[in-house]
């Protein structure tokens, strides 16, 4: 009876890329989509219940087995490859592209207040962002957006998974409330 679940499990295990629901459904025409969906959710649950070394996560629009972050220390001993490291500037620029996409370079520089050409180029090289096209305004600047690889790296299922900036704001307020109220500075010291 639980054959379906095992089939799904084996497919996800072997798949190189995160396996999407659509792909699963097309691979298993003999099984009702509703059943596939139900068994997949059951499978995810099973791994969460088990609290093992890895679990089944939804990422970049598909499903993939990934190790739990708790075991990164040991896995790094095995896996010598150095992980992707992003500078602060790269991280900030990437965040702006992620939130404001489709975005042009001048928008990014407007927010950061600093030239961002070099950072954009390195993000393009890392394939975290890509060129979408050109904007129909004078100068025809390039338009950037994040890639599927970006979603995979950061374990996001969809770009909508990012907390909205509005949510960020309420988070900020919460943090501000925890702090002592700032002493009010008055503007006496005019220069």
């Amino acid at each position: 009876m639980n054959d379906t679940r095992n089939i799904i499990e084996s497919l996800i295990f072997v798949s190189k890329e995160p396996l999407s629901m659509e792909r699963l459904i097309s691979l298993l025409p003999e099984i009702e989509p509703a059943i596939i969906r139900k068994e997949l959710l059951g499978l995810i649950d099973e791994y969460e219940q088990k609290q093992g070394g890895f679990h089944l996560v939804q990422v970049a629009g598909g499903f993939q087995f990934r190790t739990r972050a708790d075991y990164k220390t040991w896995i790094r001993r095995l896996n010598q490859a150095s992980p992707l490291r992003l500078s602060r500037a790269a991280l900030e620029t990437l965040t702006i592209v992620a939130y404001k996409q489709p975005v042009i370079r001048s928008d990014i520089e407007h927010i950061r207040g600093v030239d961002s050409g070099g950072v954009i180029r390195s993000l393009l090289d890392l394939k975290l962002i890509r060129v979408l096209g050109r904007k129909d305004i004078p100068g025809r600047p390039l338009i950037y957006s994040t890639t599927r690889f970006f979603l995979e790296i950061f374990g996001l299922s969809d770009i909508k998974d990012l907390p909205t900036l509005k949510e960020m704001e309420s988070l900020e307020k919460k943090q501000a409330l925890q702090k002592d109220p700032a002493p009010a500075h008055d503007e006496k010291n005019l220069t």
Binding site: T95, A98, Y99, I111
Partner: peptide, 30 residues
């Protein structure tokens, strides 16, 4: 603009805390 910049900085911090593939989490290589 300062508020917007701070908000994005906070978002960047949050993004960095994500479990990053190859740093915090790993996928099996069949």
């Amino acid at each position: 603009p300062l508020m917007e910049y701070l908000r994005l900085k906070a978002a960047a911090d949050l993004l960095e805390k994500h479990d990053m593939l190859g740093r915090d989490t790993f996928k099996g290589n069949p």
